[in-house]
Amino acid sequence: MNESPKVPRYSKALHRLAVVLTIAVFPLIWVGGLVTTYDAGMAVPDWPGTYGWNMFAYPATTWLFGPFDLLVEHSHRLLGALAGFLCIGLVIIAWRVEYRRWFQFWTVALLAAVIIQGGLGGARVVLDERTIAMIHGCTGPLFFAMATATAVMSSRWWIELGQESRRETESTPRPINSKLVVLATLLAIAAYMQLIVGAQLRHLTGAVAPKLFTAFVHSHLTLAGLVLLLAVIVAALSWLGRFVPASVYRPSGLLALLVLVQIALGLGTWVVNYAVPWEAINQQIAHYTILAKGFWESLIVTAHVATGSLIISLSVVIALRTWRFASVGTSQAQNKDAIHAAASQA
């Protein structure tokens, strides 16, 4: 194969950077979750500075050994800045080595997303608006999913699968079960909707009417059922179906497990926040008194938030891979048809 600029080329640097970004965003999400769990959003009253300092020059002693809320909030900002720098790096590399035009623009979109996300975080602080905090909390996982998608779409697997389809037109096309493609996509959408509803439950203010809260609780439970159902079906279809590659069935199985863990964490989150709605059962849960801002309480709640993001990203991985297989399968099939057509014409 000669290096025609039309043929996408795998770049190790680009892919590695995308993976590093994805890995870096996960702790960013965790610490962001901690900001909300500890209600530390206003532990630093200014932005983009930190107590009048350039945020990168803020004294490490106060940051690390000062108030806990300040530690959480300032760390979140630094991790956010790191994600921003990694995105800039991605754009630069993409525009130098990448041949896929759309991918170059995708990295620009990724950079725009991280800037908007940072801006929202700043607006939450400067305007002291909890509604913006809630939105910032919903868009964060979206950015995490975008970073994950970048890693998937820059991988050797993704790029070479496309090339194989051009080269090896003789090999049997293996179109992936189209139901799987649809369900995996639905799963990603449902998981994200679930996160949005979860954010409503989490970013409560006294202004929310009990009826509205009740509606959110019921939606969150219903969507939990839906996500579980979809996750189980996707896992079952990929494990039982023929021709489903390991790059799809492995993450599908993991995702189904993760959803189960997430449901357990969700129930735990409710109990450590609000106890059980049945008085008699509360009596039986031994001698548990909720400890406000307790270590385990905060860990469970924040883990529930972070796992929610992880589920979205993992379902995006699965959806993207099924799409990829589907499109390659179709193009192979088309190629084959073309060959047949050519042969019959001859």
Binding site: G41, M42, A43, G66, P67, D69, L70, T205, G206
Partner: peptide
């Protein structure tokens, strides 16, 4: 008032932080 805290770890808006949801 609104929830916030400062560099000396003084917390404000305590009722809204800890009690208002219930």
């Amino acid at each position: 008032g609104q929830v916030r805290s400062d560099e000396n770890d003084v917390h404000y808006g305590l009722y809204r932080e800890h009690c208002v949801n219930c």
